[in-house]
Amino acid sequence: MTISRLAFLSFLTILLASCVHVPDMLPLDSLTDRSVIEQCGRPFVKSPYRFVHAIEAGLPGGRTATLMGVTVVDPEAKSLHSVLMTLEGLVLFDGEYDGTLSVKRAVPPFDRDSFARNMMEDIRLLFLAPENTSAQAGVSADGSVLCRYRGKEGETIDVTVQPDHTWRIETYATPFERFREIKAGALKDGMPGELELRGYSAGRYILRLKLVDAEPVSAAAQPAEDEADGG
C-alpha cells in the first residue's frame, strides 16, 4: 500500500470517527447504581406476552406495505412465535424460534431463509433483553441512562432509556457498521404504542409497528380447542 493511500485511509478513519456521536456519560457503578442501571431493562418483556401490531414496512424506493403481525414472546424460554398476514387475514409467514428456527408457513417472497432469520433477529431485539446481562452503564446530562451490552455475535447493543421513559436501542459491529436501530414512543402504561425499527445490514428498511392489542400469555389463556377448528 502506498503512503498516500495509507494517509487517505487514516484521514477517512478519523473523519468517520469524528462523525460518530459519543455521548458524554457519567459512568455508573454496577453495585451502587443498580436501581438506575435496572432502567435499561424497561424495553424488554418480563413475562410471556402476546402482541398484535399493524406493521408499516418502508422499502427501498419509498414504497410502503402494510401488514398485520402477531407475536408471542416468552422471555424465560427465550422463544418467539410470529405470524405475518395481509390486512385481509391471509397468512404470509408463520415461524417460531426457541433456539432453533422453524418456519411453518411462508408465502413468496417471505420464504427465503434470510428473511426468517432477520425477522426473528428484529423481534428478539424489540422484545427480549440481551443474553449477556453485564453492561457498561452511564447517565448523560439530560438524565438518559445508557447501557452497553456485548451481543452473542460480538456486536454491541446500546440501550438508552430517556427521562420520559421512551427508549432507543442500537446494534452495531463498529461505529461504522450499524445493524439496527429501534425507537419506542407513545407509551401507555409503560407499553410502547409505536415502535420504529430501522435495519441497515440486510438491505435498508424501516418497520413502523403500531400496537393494536397486547395481553399476557398464561396457561389459562391458551387458544380454545373449538377455535382451532378449521371448519
Binding site: V70, M85, Q222, P223, E227
Partner: peptide, 15 residues
Amino acid sequence: TQHKHLKILTKPLVS
C-alpha cells in the same frame, strides 16, 4: 366484519 382466527390468538382479530 372480518374475524381472523389463528392458533396463536386466544380471541379472533376483528376488522
